[in-house]
Amino acid sequence: MSIHRLFLIWAIVSCVSFGSMPLGAVETLEEPTEATVRDIAKSLRCAVCQNQSVYESNSDLAKDMLSVIRTKVAAGEQEGAIRDYFFQRYGDYIYLEPTTQGGNGLLWWGPFLALLLGGIALFSALKKWRRETPVGKSPSMDTDTDTKTFQNRLKNEMEQID
Protein backbone atom coordinates (compact mmCIF):
# COMPACT_ATOMS: atom_id res chain seq x y z
CA MET A 1 0.00 0.00 0.00
CA SER A 2 1.44 3.35 -0.95
CA ILE A 3 2.13 6.12 1.52
CA HIS A 4 -0.43 8.27 -0.23
CA ARG A 5 -3.18 5.76 0.21
CA LEU A 6 -2.33 5.24 3.88
CA PHE A 7 -2.43 8.96 4.43
CA LEU A 8 -5.81 9.17 2.71
CA ILE A 9 -7.27 6.45 4.96
CA TRP A 10 -5.83 8.16 8.02
CA ALA A 11 -7.36 11.48 6.92
CA ILE A 12 -10.82 9.93 6.38
CA VAL A 13 -10.77 8.03 9.66
CA SER A 14 -9.73 11.07 11.66
CA CYS A 15 -12.30 13.27 9.94
CA VAL A 16 -15.09 10.82 10.78
CA SER A 17 -14.02 10.34 14.38
CA PHE A 18 -13.47 14.05 14.91
CA GLY A 19 -16.91 14.80 13.51
CA SER A 20 -18.54 12.34 15.88
CA MET A 21 -17.00 13.90 18.98
CA PRO A 22 -19.62 15.42 21.24
CA LEU A 23 -18.21 18.91 20.92
CA GLY A 24 -21.55 20.62 20.79
CA ALA A 25 -23.21 18.44 23.44
CA VAL A 26 -24.66 20.38 26.31
CA GLU A 27 -25.86 18.67 29.43
CA THR A 28 -29.57 19.34 29.80
CA LEU A 29 -31.14 19.14 33.20
CA GLU A 30 -34.31 17.13 33.44
CA GLU A 31 -37.43 18.66 34.91
CA PRO A 32 -37.98 17.14 38.36
CA THR A 33 -41.48 16.02 37.41
CA GLU A 34 -40.13 14.10 34.40
CA ALA A 35 -39.03 11.23 36.67
CA THR A 36 -42.63 10.78 37.84
CA VAL A 37 -43.86 10.95 34.25
CA ARG A 38 -41.32 8.27 33.30
CA ASP A 39 -42.32 6.04 36.22
CA ILE A 40 -45.99 6.20 35.29
CA ALA A 41 -45.37 5.81 31.55
CA LYS A 42 -43.13 2.77 32.12
CA SER A 43 -45.83 1.01 34.11
CA LEU A 44 -48.53 1.52 31.47
CA ARG A 45 -48.88 -0.52 28.32
CA CYS A 46 -49.13 1.37 25.08
CA ALA A 47 -52.72 0.52 24.19
CA VAL A 48 -52.03 -0.35 20.55
CA CYS A 49 -48.76 -2.24 21.05
CA GLN A 50 -48.44 -5.85 22.10
CA ASN A 51 -45.84 -5.49 24.81
CA GLN A 52 -44.33 -2.06 25.00
CA SER A 53 -44.75 0.57 27.64
CA VAL A 54 -46.11 4.01 26.88
CA TYR A 55 -42.63 5.33 27.61
CA GLU A 56 -40.83 3.08 25.12
CA SER A 57 -43.34 3.05 22.30
CA ASN A 58 -43.09 5.28 19.28
CA SER A 59 -46.75 4.98 18.33
CA ASP A 60 -48.86 8.10 18.07
CA LEU A 61 -51.24 6.92 20.77
CA ALA A 62 -48.37 6.29 23.20
CA LYS A 63 -46.92 9.75 22.51
CA ASP A 64 -50.29 11.36 23.17
CA MET A 65 -50.79 9.26 26.29
CA LEU A 66 -47.38 10.46 27.45
CA SER A 67 -48.43 14.06 26.93
CA VAL A 68 -51.64 13.41 28.88
CA ILE A 69 -49.51 11.97 31.73
CA ARG A 70 -47.20 14.99 31.54
CA THR A 71 -50.12 17.43 31.73
CA LYS A 72 -51.60 15.60 34.69
CA VAL A 73 -48.29 15.42 36.57
CA ALA A 74 -47.77 19.13 35.93
CA ALA A 75 -51.26 19.77 37.28
CA GLY A 76 -50.17 18.09 40.50
CA GLU A 77 -52.22 14.89 40.24
CA GLN A 78 -51.03 11.93 42.29
CA GLU A 79 -49.25 9.00 40.60
CA GLY A 80 -51.93 6.55 41.72
CA ALA A 81 -54.72 8.78 40.44
CA ILE A 82 -53.10 9.08 37.01
CA ARG A 83 -52.59 5.31 36.74
CA ASP A 84 -56.20 4.86 37.78
CA TYR A 85 -57.34 7.34 35.12
CA PHE A 86 -55.99 5.03 32.42
CA PHE A 87 -57.20 1.90 34.23
CA GLN A 88 -60.76 3.31 34.29
CA ARG A 89 -60.62 3.78 30.53
CA TYR A 90 -58.60 0.86 29.22
CA GLY A 91 -59.05 -1.75 31.94
CA ASP A 92 -56.55 -4.33 33.22
CA TYR A 93 -54.82 -4.44 29.87
CA ILE A 94 -53.21 -1.05 30.46
CA TYR A 95 -51.01 -2.24 33.34
CA LEU A 96 -47.82 -3.94 32.20
CA GLU A 97 -47.81 -5.70 35.56
CA PRO A 98 -51.41 -6.76 36.21
CA THR A 99 -53.01 -6.27 39.60
CA THR A 100 -53.75 -9.25 41.82
CA GLN A 101 -57.18 -7.99 42.79
CA GLY A 102 -60.55 -9.45 41.92
CA GLY A 103 -60.66 -12.20 39.29
CA ASN A 104 -56.95 -11.72 38.63
CA GLY A 105 -56.27 -13.19 42.06
CA LEU A 106 -57.48 -16.55 40.78
CA LEU A 107 -54.99 -16.39 37.91
CA TRP A 108 -52.16 -15.46 40.25
CA TRP A 109 -52.82 -17.93 43.03
CA GLY A 110 -54.66 -20.64 41.06
CA PRO A 111 -51.49 -22.40 39.81
CA PHE A 112 -50.04 -22.51 43.33
CA LEU A 113 -53.32 -23.89 44.64
CA ALA A 114 -53.33 -26.51 41.87
CA LEU A 115 -49.72 -27.42 42.71
CA LEU A 116 -50.65 -27.77 46.38
CA LEU A 117 -53.66 -29.96 45.59
CA GLY A 118 -51.55 -32.07 43.22
CA GLY A 119 -48.90 -32.44 45.92
CA ILE A 120 -51.46 -33.58 48.48
CA ALA A 121 -52.94 -36.04 45.97
CA LEU A 122 -49.51 -37.47 45.09
CA PHE A 123 -48.54 -37.71 48.76
CA SER A 124 -51.69 -39.58 49.74
CA ALA A 125 -51.42 -41.86 46.71
CA LEU A 126 -47.81 -42.74 47.57
CA LYS A 127 -48.80 -43.43 51.15
CA LYS A 128 -51.59 -45.71 49.98
CA TRP A 129 -49.36 -47.65 47.57
CA ARG A 130 -46.81 -48.31 50.32
CA ARG A 131 -49.59 -49.50 52.64
CA GLU A 132 -50.91 -51.90 50.01
CA THR A 133 -47.65 -53.88 49.86
CA PRO A 134 -48.28 -56.63 52.49
CA VAL A 135 -45.87 -56.53 55.41
CA GLY A 136 -43.53 -59.51 56.00
CA LYS A 137 -43.63 -60.71 52.44
CA SER A 138 -40.59 -59.66 50.47
CA PRO A 139 -40.85 -59.15 46.74
CA SER A 140 -38.01 -61.69 46.15
CA MET A 141 -40.27 -64.55 47.37
CA ASP A 142 -42.76 -63.59 44.72
CA THR A 143 -40.09 -63.82 42.07
CA ASP A 144 -39.07 -67.24 43.36
CA THR A 145 -42.59 -68.64 43.08
CA ASP A 146 -42.97 -67.04 39.68
CA THR A 147 -39.78 -68.60 38.44
CA LYS A 148 -40.83 -72.02 39.76
CA THR A 149 -44.23 -71.85 38.10
CA PHE A 150 -42.59 -70.72 34.90
CA GLN A 151 -40.05 -73.52 34.98
CA ASN A 152 -42.79 -76.11 35.62
CA ARG A 153 -44.85 -74.75 32.75
CA LEU A 154 -41.83 -74.74 30.44
CA LYS A 155 -41.00 -78.31 31.42
CA ASN A 156 -44.56 -79.44 30.76
CA GLU A 157 -44.70 -77.78 27.39
CA MET A 158 -41.33 -79.18 26.34
CA GLU A 159 -42.55 -82.65 27.28
CA GLN A 160 -45.64 -82.14 25.18
CA ILE A 161 -43.55 -81.19 22.15
CA ASP A 162 -41.35 -84.25 22.64
Binding site: A47, V48, D60, L61, D64, V68, Q88, R89
Partner: peptide
Amino acid sequence: PDQKIAIDWGVYG
Protein backbone atom coordinates in the same frame (compact mmCIF):
# COMPACT_ATOMS: atom_id res chain seq x y z
CA PRO B 1 -56.13 16.64 16.82
CA ASP B 2 -54.12 15.47 19.85
CA GLN B 3 -56.63 12.70 20.69
CA LYS B 4 -57.41 14.05 24.15
CA ILE B 5 -61.07 13.00 23.88
CA ALA B 6 -60.12 9.69 22.28
CA ILE B 7 -57.84 8.80 25.23
CA ASP B 8 -60.46 10.09 27.68
CA TRP B 9 -62.92 7.69 26.04
CA GLY B 10 -60.51 4.76 26.08
CA VAL B 11 -60.15 4.59 22.30
CA TYR B 12 -57.47 2.25 20.90
CA GLY B 13 -57.82 3.00 17.23
